[in-house]
Computed example of a mutant assay.
Amino acid sequence: MTDVTAPTGEISIKNDMWASLLNTLTIDLFFKETQTVEIAADDDSYGMVGHSDDDAAKVAYLIDDGDTAFTVDELEGMRFTEYTGPFSIEPDQRLVVYARITDHADNVTYISSDGLVLDATLPAVTGVDDGGTYYATRAVDVDDENLATVTLDGAPVTGGFELEGNVDRSYTIVATDRAGNVTEVTVTMKPVEDLAGQIEGLTSDTVGPDDRETVEAVKDAAEENLGDATDEERAELEDLIERCDELLSEIDAAEAAVAAEAKAARLAGTGDTLPVMAVCSHLAIGVLAIVGGELLRRGCRF
């Protein structure tokens, strides 16, 4: 009896199954973890007299990273890999799984999955750092190839957005992509006057070298917050930077004075030893003169 019936089969990935060759692909399946691919084959030849396991349908597969569905004619010229059991597909990639099932009479069936995206990359939130403290308005952006939603304190936002500055509050940004990867960023916003308060009480009369680290930290924070600041915030920050520069100049002057005093003390200490050295030198010359005179008196030459 001639076998003219093509075998059948099925591709399974998690809860999705495909049993035919798709004419069009939709990229609508997203996973954030490694997935297992299983391919099953069924052939009605098993019921024929004399059919054995050696005649079982053979299965092979092909992984393609394109977005266009292949036709039977295109697949017939491609290289497939023998299927020996379930195999894994790893993030981060886009792909389609094709299967070729061939029975003992060389009847062939092709089947394919839909487009799959395996994405283990978290959405990237730029403009602020998780746990950061800021004093002026910040521009924030979220980047992800498969971005689904972004919320600011629970309310949906789109595109780039700003966090109002110079206020006392916190913000929470949650970005989720279509594969289920989630990035959550929480930042604290403070008034500029809180930053200025860190050097409150420091004047040209009270500031000293021990205050340098604090003043420099305040200046650095003020400069770092200038980028997206409003005009009003920028004015406050620039005034604070100018004040820090004045305090740092006072610290520089104080340190220079201390260094000058130390140098003067060293020079004074070195000068105290000069008379002693001079006396020793005169004594040595006197001794040589006496010895020389005594030798001449005795008629010795040298």
Results as ranks from 00 to 15, higher is better:
Ala60Asn: 09
Leu21Ala: 06
Thr24Gly: 01
Met48Glu: 15
Asp114Ile: 04
Ser249Pro: 03
Leu202Ala: 00
Asp130Arg: 12
Phe70Trp: 07
Val97Ala: 02
Leu295Asp: 00
Ser88Leu: 14
Ala148Gln: 15
Gly66Leu: 02
Pro209Gln: 08
Leu288Asp: 10
Asp129Ser: 15
Glu76Asn: 15
Ala105Cys: 03
Val215Ile: 12
Arg79Gly: 06
Ala41Trp: 06
Asp44Phe: 03
Asp220Ile: 00
Arg169Thr: 14
Asp114Lys: 02
Leu240Asp: 02
Val287Met: 11
Leu147Gln: 08
Ile241Asn: 02
Glu200Ala: 15
Lys190Tyr: 01
Arg301Trp: 05
Ala57Asn: 02
Ile101Pro: 07
Val192Lys: 04
Gly47Trp: 04
Phe80Cys: 09
Met277Arg: 15
Asp42Thr: 03
Glu238Ser: 03
Ala136Trp: 03
Gln35Phe: 02
Val150Asn: 05
Ser249Met: 12
Asp143Val: 14
Met17Leu: 12
Val215Asn: 01
Gln93Lys: 08
Ala136Arg: 03
Leu22Ser: 08
Gly154Cys: 09
Leu202Ile: 04
Ile27Glu: 04
Thr133Ala: 07
Ile111Met: 11
Val279Tyr: 01
Val192Glu: 04
Ile89Gly: 04
Ala105Trp: 12
Tyr110Asn: 03
Val140Asn: 05
Gly159Ala: 03
Leu147Asn: 12
Val287Arg: 03
Gly47Asp: 14
Arg138Gly: 12
Ile173Cys: 01
Arg234Lys: 14
Leu122Ile: 10
Ala264Asp: 14
Tyr83Asp: 08
Thr8Cys: 06
Gly47His: 07
Cys244Arg: 00
Glu294Leu: 10
Thr102Lys: 09
Glu164Cys: 07
Met277Gly: 08
Thr203Gln: 09
Arg138Glu: 05
Ile101Arg: 04
Leu274Ile: 15
Thr24His: 00
Gly165Lys: 04
Asp42Trp: 05
Asp3Ala: 13
Gly154Ala: 06
Asp210Ile: 13
Ala278Glu: 11
Asp106Met: 15
Glu294Thr: 04
Leu240Val: 00
Asp205Pro: 01
Ser281Pro: 02
Leu29Lys: 15
Leu195Glu: 05
Thr71Asp: 02
Lys263Ile: 10
Asp103Met: 09
Ile199Thr: 01
Asp168Pro: 01
Ala229Asn: 05
Thr24Ala: 05
Leu122Arg: 06
Ser12Gln: 13
Ser249Gln: 15
Glu261Gln: 12
Ser281Tyr: 10
Glu33Thr: 11
Thr24Ile: 06
